[in-house]
Design a protein around this nucleic acid. Structure first.
Lengths: 209, 209
DNA sequence: GTCTATACAACGATAGAC
DNA sequence: GTCTATCGTTGTATAGAC
């Protein structure tokens, strides 16, 4: 059934704009969901996805800004890492945790917490979705933030940050644990930012905070 | 098919030991899974569960030590709150976080991380399972720990503790984020206990730890 | 004619074969 | 260590819509 999204696989491709309503964006998203879920984030190639969608790989860049943007769009993760990471890094490093938390809450509140629960659902039962999300969180998000900070043991710090942020999502959007589920940004930042900041730049080897 | 677990509902009950290995325990577990899933943790009553299992409510106490023990057994949560909470409280309050983390890791490592993922799966898609787990985490586990500590804003602290512990479970048992997924107890305690301890007894209103 | 969606070619990086 | 294949990405020319 992979030919369902193929287009013009036998005819020579035409350059320039398609005839009418040829929805390249949607075709890429459909193909991306297929290929990412079949092969995971790393193994899936832009070329394969574009091939299955019947369009040129350059269209991925044109429409989604690259592989990462295509991934987040396909997984309905409401962020664009290409612009998110620089925005988070823009400011004092000792307030990075606060910026991460404010953005995390704003973004997922905006689309409604149900999408976070949906993401967790697709992850909990699916080993490929697990590796996709794991690689994405690590390689695309936190690795880049940690690289800029220059802290020691960056891999461990990445994992620790993931525990705190994923746990916040679970409590707020899945478990609906009050008063956290209805807390405003400032309350969340006051409560959690110091802990997240310790994972980013503090002493994680046993000394005091 | 709810009558599948009913037994002898029309015949008069016999006193004393059942004929042969009539597996009262298994019948109670099956009935408990049904009733808890239908009604949630609070609404489900021991009498209803015992009735559906066709046994006396006293059997719940005999086999599981009470409603909580039956719940954890039915949900395959490998803890017994009746003994867990006192054990955790036995020791200096400033090391409570360390005891919680050591127990959490030991318990879930012991049964293999797959059971944690299974729990998350049943929770992410099921609103009743959500309320079950939420009430259980709050009322049965952390509320009792926090009550003993006498910290301010106990409800918020309960939710914050849940973010850190649930997040650890997600990262270690679901996402398999290295090096956390293979880290030993001591590494986890050194890294996470100070943060969890802040949620338990520290200043969560914006001051430094 | 202008704008833009599109395809093709090529570049630098990287991983694996030998 | 070298060679090759393949990856993501970029620059540019072209075809169709308006």
């Amino acid at each position: 059934m992979s030919s369902g999204v193929d287009r013009d696989s036998s005819e020579p491709k035409r350059r320039g704009r398609r005839r009418n309503g040829a929805d390249t964006k949607a075709a890429l998203l459909d193909a991306a969901r297929e290929v990412f879920t079949e092969q995971g984030y790393e193994s899936a190639t832009v070329r394969t996805i574009a091939g299955r969608a019947g369009v040129d790989p350059a269209m991925v860049n044109h429409w989604f800004g690259g592989k990462e943007g295509l991934f987040t769009a396909a997984m309905r993760i409401p962020i664009n890492p290409a612009e998110l990471v620089p925005q988070l890094l823009d400011g004092p490093p000792e307030e990075l945790a606060e910026r991460i938390l404010r953005r995390f809450v704003a973004v997922w509140d905006d689309v409604g917490g149900g999408q976070f629960a949906a993401l967790m659902r697709s992850v909990a039962g699916n080993e490929i979705a697990v590796s996709m999300l794991r690689d994405f969180i690590k390689d695309v998000l936190f690795d880049r933030l940690l690289a800029e900070l220059g802290s020691d043991r960056p891999d461990l710090r990445v994992a620790l940050c993931a525990t705190q942020v994923a746990g916040l999502g679970m409590a707020r959007y899945v478990l609906h644990l009050e008063p956290l589920a209805s807390a405003d940004e400032d309350t969340i930042v006051s409560a959690i930012a110091p802990n997240l900041q310790r994972y980013l730049t503090g002493d994680i080897s046993g000394g005091s905070a």
